[in-house]
Design a binder for these strands. Structure first.
Lengths: 342, 342
DNA sequence: CCCCTGTTTGGTAGCGCTACCATTCTCCTG
DNA sequence: CAGGAGAATGGTAGCGCTACCAAACAGGGG
């Protein structure tokens, strides 16, 4: 004597209900939904009608349990509020919004250990793919990524040895290009100002240094940094410090646009002419840079596109067409504006 | 003849493995993990040891399937890149990071229909709670929220009639306070400049209007808006338009800080003295406002705190201690700065 | 000493779906 | 026309966990 089925789930239709209504087997419904080409035209139509009529929505949990594979993209970024990563995340969401995949977002707070912890949570859930920011994972994190059993895309940088796939651009080259631009514009005592010196910032700094050394202009006293989180306020404070150290400063390469904006405001406050007395270059080219007065030179980085491309590559790998180009360099673009037009 | 178990899952330990190792029943392990107080001290220790030794991590999908309840907070916001919502989301993540709950984020792109679509995806997954931005859901969305069978927190606003719970502040009062501040500072021909006039912006505009009418200063030509997405560039363009319409403008209440920044830059460009010739007030008080030159007056809004509070209320409701205060008004704070110090 | 209550533990039967294999039904080849 | 390959469909048996109930055990009152 079977007990009447209690429907713990709360009564919403299951694949069995659809199958009964369409007069087919449950497994055929499952196939019609996942691999329509393997089901005949006729049944497909019948099943679709039953789905629509019942308002059937597949249960992702049951699917994940049965197939040992969740339709989830795990995404790890160092910050949710930093506009740079917000753009990458937006690109990822936009690319995934009409497919079957969900996004599971993790905030590492710029901490390798936190990244490790999150990977330990994400990896056992058998995600469809993992997207992580940067290439400086801890050895443990790297092992977790390698053994995750799914496509892995590292984003925001380039490098020789990705875990799996890689989309980004060279921060070293970006820093060098920005600095060379200032040198070409005629600036000589060019400072570097940076906050929260994460690995990407370090590489931009290295690019700055290379350009300065090549031009015979390098002096360690030109560098002003802090481990604090970047902000506009910090930008003008660091700029004041830099000026105190080196009153003859005539240009600054700012590690990011917030800092650059802070420097600009400080120049206004101190009545320093931009670009005549001080040249300013930022990094990332947020929208406000071109709207500033004077408009600020910056390095435009393809954040949104990186997110989209990462998803595209992961999707390709999932469907078996692993892209032959595992490393994609999307480059960057110098946007020269009035702040460096001497 | 039973087939040898194939372990589709890929060999990671299950609750049964832990149970065997600890010498107890599977269900006792399940209980020890979820309601430790219902299991004796001794067994708890044994089980914990087995869990640690095997590196057992519960499968959230199996749990969700068996209990008809996912440990997921569904979160719907209109934008991922707008710093305002990024802060709310950060508050939510920070509050949830050490518990068993995951976050499922949806981007509605300021579209009621998109919100509806996302709710249709989220609701059947039986989330533990839903957090949605705003109080202007479509009737369909509202019905979905009401029948979701979980705590629902609407955030960012106040209002008389939430679906369930509500955390935010009054945009009307914010707009009125900003405008009154300008009036008290001696400005008279005060414009309103706003982009992407979502419901919250509309309410701020209504607050502006109320203050202006009360002071006998209202003139519809003082209002300049656009449906376009807000940006700094748009701020200075709209300000130019406003000045063209009303050359005698002596103050502006900007719908948000990006716009305010754009207005400030345009004032620099046109050599209009701030605050003498033009007073500027923004909204939200992003970090850059106090760092600007001159520092910009704004209305500080408790975005991060809203995220945290929403989670706290939802968690309370989940554990049965539904807060008696269903509607929480966290208020806002006028930050008067030099941009309105006539 | 038995019954009753309350606490702790365990067994059974699914949750809704899909992997795996079996079956049926073509249609082609020799 | 038998035999075999291939396409379309279905049945069975789980995936790993928890709801539900039953059982075992202790302690206290009559």
């Amino acid at each position: 004597m079977t007990k009447p089925r209690s429907r713990r789930g709360g009564g919403r239709p299951t694949i069995g209900d659809v199958a009964r209504k369409a007069g087919v087997g449950a497994i055929t419904v499952s196939r019609a939904l996942r691999e329509p080409e393997r089901v005949s035209q006729d049944l497909r139509r019948q099943i679709q009608a039953a789905v629509d009529e019942l308002g059937y929505v597949p249960d992702p949990n049951a699917r994940a349990l049965a197939s040992a594979r969740a339709d989830v993209f795990g995404v790890l970024v160092p910050s949710l509020t930093n506009n740079v990563f917000a753009e990458v995340v937006r690109g990822i969401y936009d690319s995934l919004s009409d497919g079957p995949f969900r996004v599971q977002l993790g905030n590492t707070h710029y901490s390798g250990l936190e990244e490790e912890r999150l990977l330990q949570v994400f990896a056992p859930q058998r995600p469809a793919a993992l997207i992580v920011a940067g290439i400086d994972q801890t050895p443990t994190s790297r092992k977790l990524l390698e053994s995750a059993g799914c496509p892995v895309v590292q984003v925001m940088e380039t490098g020789p040895d990705p875990v799996d796939m890689l989309v980004g651009f060279s921060h070293f080259d970006g820093g060098r290009t920005a600095t060379e631009h200032l040198i070409e514009a005629g600036y000589r005592r060019i400072g570097f100002i940076g906050a929260r010196m994460d690995p990407r910032s370090q590489r931009r700094l290295a690019g700055y240094r290379a350009a300065m050394e090549k031009a015979g202009l390098f002096d360690p006293r030109l560098i002003t940094t802090t481990p604090l989180l970047s902000s506009v306020t910090l930008g003008h404070e660091l700029f004041r410090d830099a000026l105190a150290k080196m009153p003859a400063l005539d240009g600054v390469f700012c590690n990011n646009d917030d800092i650059a904006l802070g420097v600009l405001f400080e120049c206004h406050r101190a009545a320093l002419d931009v670009p005549k007395t001080i040249g300013i270059v930022g990094f990332n080219d947020l929208e406000m840079m071109q709207a500033a007065f004077p408009p600020l030179t910056s390095i435009r980085t393809p954040r949104y596109e990186i997110g989209r491309r990462a998803v595209a590559m992961a999707l390709a790998a999932i469907t078996g067409q692993r892209p032959e180009q595992r490393i994609v360099d999307l480059g960057f673009e110098l946007k020269p504006r009035e702040s460096t037009a001497r």
